[in-house]
Every structure is written in C-alpha cells, then in structure tokens.
Amino acid sequence: MAAKTLTIDGQLVSAEENQTLLEAARDAQIPIPTLCHLDGVMDVGACRMCLVEIVGTPKLLPACVTKVQEGLEVRTNSERLQRYRRLLLELLFAERNHVCAVCVSNGHCELQDLATQHGMDHVRYAYQAPNLGVDLSHRLYGLDHNRCVLCTRCVRVCWYIEGAGTLNLAGRGTGSMIITDLNQPWADSDTCTACGKCVQACPTGALFYKGATVAEMERDRQKLEYIVTAREKKQWNV
C-alpha cells in the first residue's frame, strides 16, 4: 500500500493510502475532537466536531470520512474551528436535557469532556427543554432520550456489528428519536439480542445499565474494538 505524506498542523505526517485524516492525525498524536465517530463502525460525518481546514479548499471537511492525499496541508485547531466546535457543543447542550449533575455518566461522558476541552462554561442559546421519556422497560438497560445526541453510534453497532437491526432513528430533524423496532418499549422488542453493544457505544448517559446511579456508568470502549476485530479479522486480541 502506497504511503502518502501530508502536513497536519505544521507537522509532516505519513499515512497509508486508505487512511482517513482522523486516523492519520491520531497516529501522529494530533488530537481531533470527535463525537459520532466510534472506532470499528462506519463513519457518518454527522456531528461536525472533527471538521478541519484544508489549505486551498474553501470548505471545511470532516476528518473522519476524508481520505488522506499526498501533499495536503491540514489545520485541525484554528481559532475558527475552535469557535465552531464550541458553538456546536452549545447547540447540543441546548437541544435536550443534559443535566450533568444527576447523570449516570457524569465524569465519564464524551459530551461533558468535549465541553470542558472547548471552554464551554455556559450555553448562550435557549434551552429547548423537550419533554422526552426514559425507556426503562428492558430488563438490563435503560434509554434516556433526554441525554441522546443522535450520534447514531448505537444504531450503527446494532446494525453493523451485532446485525440485529433493532435500533433505528425515527422521525426527522429536531424531532428525531432513537427507537426500537416499531417504536415499542424496548422490552417488547422481538429482535433485540440484549447484547449491550449499544450501551457500550453511547457517548453520553442516554444508554445505561439499569442500576447504575449518578456517575457510575463507565464504559469499556475496548470491548467493542475487540469484537469488531474478532468478527472481521478473526483475531482475538485478549
């Protein structure tokens, strides 16, 4: 496989031909913030946190789905990108009811971490305070729509890793919701295998183990990678 050389934040980086900008940057220890990206599942480029500037291109490109090219000059952390990222976070916090203080994921939440990293000390946009429910019907897991950022990580692991197709997005726009089967209580799902990958995939406290209380919901991200590698490459990296 041919190697490509490019510049990321002034640093010369060599990458494999099929790598994305995100992969190349991470290999070079250059952090790019992400939210909807999850190692091991297909990227969708939806959260826009990983947008980067490419010299000579007017448009910002999502690093998670943009392939490396020879000679690219990439900027991942300009003042403008930082501003956009903070705004995106403010929009996410205002969209649903993210109350960190009483969240199972407090302290282990990717959204909370991103806000901290981007200096988001308050939200200037109006909180929408939608009236959303919590599905606690499942015997093992709970789904709190109030904390969902619609990143679809759970949907993708359910479809592409587990292959069950239980979870999906329903509705559209700001009314989008994660549903199980025909929008029935999770416990009534005919297709759910209770594998728990969705819970492992969730970046926030939207999906959680029942019984977890505030700040107790920790995830083992390596588990997903382990399964993906096992299924795709037949390698069990214990």
């Binding site: 479809w159 069950a164 197709g165 239980t166 979870l167 999906n168 997005l169 329903a170 549903i179 199980t180 089967d181 025909l182 929008n183 005919d190 297709t191």
Partner: peptide, 8 residues
C-alpha cells in the same frame, strides 16, 4: 427488513 427500518 428489520421493523425498525420500516418505522424509521
């Protein structure tokens, strides 16, 4: 097709 797909 999965039912969730039809509902979606």
């Amino acid at each position: 097709l999965p039912t969730s797909r039809v509902y979606g």
